[in-house]
Amino acid sequence: MGKKHIFDDPRNVKRLLKIFFSFVIILLILDVLYIFLSKAHVIHRHINYKWEEFFGFYAFFGFVACVILVLVSKYILRPLVKRREDYYDN
């Protein structure tokens, strides 16, 4: 194969994961900061619903929504609809 590519090295994959996980944590910290600043009326916070005032509403919603999406697809939808590739052919 010759050339080594960036993600052939498992250390690079680990590095990427580390960067990603730290980003996620930074976002949560920013969220806390944002709540404080808007409570102190330093910056205006535009919200549609009271739900959004909770810490990390969007973060947890995104996480839980995607997990539910995948679990439902895998354990409910797939067993119901999966057929062999030539299902319609005969």
Binding site: F20, F21, F23, V24, L27, D31, E52, G56, F57, Y58, A59, F60, F61, G62, F63, V64, A65, C66, V67, V70
Partner: peptide, 12 residues
């Protein structure tokens, strides 16, 4: 909020 939503989807 949008960045949070997307990053945590990626986390999932």
């Amino acid at each position: 909020s949008q960045t949070e939503l997307l990053f945590f989807s990626a986390l999932a």
